[in-house]
């Protein structure tokens, strides 16, 4: 029995969101008389950080403290429409919608403040701490709370804004058929190192090193948690997970979490991640989306690493010990490739 080490690499080009029907999402932003703002969305936070990132985008656009913004994703029956939380579209699509809504709400807020301060709205600026003042004359100031109260009880205005992001229709070139199915792409490269046991076919992850280019990281810790966690979902897809291991024959399908294998805490390995920030021209503050792509490069990199380790090329997933052993047997033993 020998354990063979192998290293594999994969690069991906990942389109953010999709293009069906323009992939729209809407957002509504309004203030209440306390001067706090609510963002209404139907977009769902699955734990990936949608609420945090849309809250940041709204606060930054309005020019108010982030703690003054509340994001309500409670009900897709009553909220504005969203296509959903998938395809890494949340930050980009929903973020753009929130930005548009917050920009409109900011316009109304500045007009209402201008009326109270008896100045031109174009001469006003926000200080990001909950105040609006005349440029160059910070003593001529009013709090966003007082503006909200004046709008509600005196001026009869709603400080609110509507936003939608809709992907522009892509024209098809009549000569070549070429079109642009996505508006922005994220990129990644991942190197996986594995150890393959040529007697059992078992594969252990040894380490991963990756670089992700995902626009501006609007919340670096949330980006990091996505990339760290998502890589292990990728390993799950590469090595363990399937509802039908002998598809199309449904035999031996897993019935519970004991049989449906996923990486456990004992399977993980070190993973060094570098995040490269190249702001997207059409992203909210340059953001793209780290969602799905955090799992994607892992699969081909692991498949390549297994080939590098024992010389077998497995082209259907997951790469189980049984497949590895059969392939090693078919070629008459492990054939480690040159280390790269």
């Amino acid at each position: 029995m020998t354990r063979h080490r192998g290293r594999g690499m994969a690069s991906i080009n990942y389109p953010i969101g999709m293009n069906l029907g323009g992939d729209p999402s809407q957002a509504l932003v309004h203030s209440n008389p306390s001067g706090k703002f609510t963002v209404a969305l139907s977009s769902i936070d699955l734990g990936q950080g949608m609420k945090s990132v849309t809250r940041q985008i709204c606060a930054e656009t309005l020019g108010v403290p982030v703690e003054d913004v509340y994001v309500d994703t409670a009900d897709s029956d009553t909220g504005p429409h969203c296509m959903g939380s998938f395809a890494s579209r949340g930050t980009h699509r929903v973020g753009n919608a929130v930005m548009a809504a917050a920009r409109e709400a900011r316009g109304v807020m500045m007009e209402a403040a201008a009326e109270e301060l008896e100045v031109n709205a174009a001469d006003l600026e926000t200080d990001g701490r909950g105040n609006i003042h005349v440029k160059g004359a910070p003593h001529r100031s009013i709090s966003t709370k007082d503006v909200a109260i004046a709008a509600q009880f005196k001026q009869g205005k709603t400080i609110s804004g509507r936003g939608i992001f809709l992907v522009p229709l892509s024209d098809v070139d009549p000569e070549t058929g070429e079109m642009s199915p996505a508006t922005c792409y994220a990129h990644a490269c991942l190197v996986a190192e594995v150890e393959v046991d040529d007697e059992t076919g078992e594969i252990a992850m040894v380490r991963m090193d990756s670089a992700y280019e995902l626009g501006r990281a609007l919340n670096p810790r949330l980006v990091e948690q996505q990339l760290v966690g998502g890589a292990w979902m990728g390993v799950g897809h590469a090595l363990y997970e399937t509802p039908e291991p002998y598809y199309p024959d449904p035999v031996h399908g897993p019935r519970d979490f004991v049989e449906y294998l996923m990486p456990g805490p004992g399977d993980i390995c070190p993973h060094d991640i570098a995040v490269l920030e190249r702001p997207a021209p059409d992203g909210p503050f340059g953001g793209k989306g780290p969602g799905e792509m955090c799992a994607n490069p892992v699969l081909p990199a692991v498949a390549n690493a297994i080939f590098n380790a024992v010389g077998v090329r497995i082209d259907d997933l997951p790469i189980t010990p049984e497949k590895v052993l059969r392939a090693i047997k078919a070629q008459g033993g492990a054939r480690p490739q040159a280390r790269r």
């Binding site: 979902m233 979490f257 990486p263 456990g264 805490p265 993980i268 993973h271």
Partner: peptide
């Protein structure tokens, strides 16, 4: 924690 499964975090942050 080996009797507990997690889909999101990759366990590293929990450890």
């Amino acid at each position: 924690i080996s009797g507990n499964i997690c889909r999101c975090t990759g366990y590293e942050p929990i450890i």
